[in-house]
Simulated assay, not measured.
Amino acid sequence: MLQTEKVTAAPDYSTYRSNKTIPKIIENEVLKALSFYPELRDTCIHFVFKRRIRKSVMQAQPKFSTMLSGKREYNINISAMFRLTTSAIPIHQIPSDIMVGWIGHELGHIMDYESKSVAQMARFGLGYLFSASFIKQAERAADTYAVNHGLGRYIVQTKHFILNHANLSEKYKSKIARLYLSPNDIIEQVRKLEEAELKAS
């Protein structure tokens, strides 16, 4: 008797496409990352390729013209090229799980923004411009949002990808190590979350 292989259907992330502008070439990764944030299902977010983003690969920002309206919109700017020390590759060519982790981190920023008033966002913008300690706090908050929403393993993979990449500049790696949660910090957060879930069950 012939046995047929069991085919597992791919998850349907289409419900997370609402109010989103997503380049087709990274749509799967973006929708997968969004699936960890049901709170953002109806939030208007534009994923925008940029030729270059100063000192960053991705950047989550509010659309300032919508800050005083009842429905905020956000941009997640994505560098079209992943720049290495002597070359560059299209950003969509980095491993899929790394892209999910990176986008998941940026969505963590949007979760943080959603919790802030206009005045708080103004202070946030000033702090991010002028205070290294504020940047560290903001980036770690975004990582924590991502971990708390179940993206821990993706964030760890993304951090390892950056910190262990032979062709990324040491300056950029140093910035990531200094300002963001380390892989070990994230693993510890995941462990504590799992312990809390076990106690609650």
Results as ranks from 00 to 15, higher is better:
46 H>W: 11
166 A>I: 07
15 T>Q: 03
146 A>T: 07
28 N>Q: 00
83 R>G: 03
145 Y>H: 15
14 S>Q: 00
148 N>C: 08
144 T>D: 14
31 L>R: 02
157 Q>N: 14
109 H>K: 07
23 P>H: 01
137 Q>P: 07
75 N>K: 11
189 Q>V: 04
199 K>D: 04
201 S>V: 03
85 T>G: 01
112 D>P: 13
46 H>R: 14
46 H>F: 12
188 E>L: 08
9 A>I: 01
118 V>A: 15
181 L>Y: 13
17 R>D: 04
101 G>K: 11
32 K>A: 03
5 E>Q: 03
147 V>M: 12
189 Q>S: 09
62 P>S: 13
92 H>L: 00
28 N>W: 02
136 K>I: 11
185 D>W: 12
154 Y>M: 05
89 I>E: 04
126 L>R: 05
40 L>G: 08
173 K>Y: 06
60 A>W: 10
128 Y>K: 06
58 M>R: 08
24 K>N: 00
162 I>H: 08
49 F>K: 01
137 Q>A: 14
190 V>N: 07
151 L>S: 06
116 K>R: 15
169 S>V: 02
88 A>E: 11
200 A>Y: 06
110 I>M: 08
139 E>T: 14
87 S>P: 02
67 M>R: 11
201 S>E: 06
143 D>N: 13
121 M>N: 13
37 Y>F: 15
86 T>R: 12
44 C>K: 15
54 R>E: 12
143 D>A: 09
111 M>L: 14
4 T>S: 01
14 S>P: 01
16 Y>E: 00
172 Y>E: 08
197 E>M: 05
182 S>E: 09
89 I>A: 03
48 V>N: 10
95 P>C: 09
11 P>Y: 00
108 G>Q: 14
152 G>C: 10
95 P>R: 06
33 A>L: 06
43 T>S: 11
134 F>Y: 15
19 N>V: 03
79 S>G: 03
68 L>H: 13
172 Y>R: 07
184 N>K: 14
179 L>F: 12
99 M>T: 02
30 V>H: 02
119 A>I: 15
109 H>S: 08
177 A>G: 05
113 Y>R: 09
156 V>K: 06
63 K>Y: 11
47 F>C: 04
3 Q>F: 05
168 L>D: 06
57 V>M: 10
6 K>N: 02
62 P>Y: 15
51 R>F: 03
198 L>T: 04
159 K>W: 10
47 F>L: 03
126 L>Q: 09
174 S>G: 14
175 K>S: 14
53 I>Y: 03
154 Y>N: 12
180 Y>E: 11
184 N>I: 12
29 E>A: 04
188 E>Y: 08
45 I>A: 11
71 K>V: 11
94 I>N: 01
106 E>C: 08
20 K>V: 04
140 R>K: 15
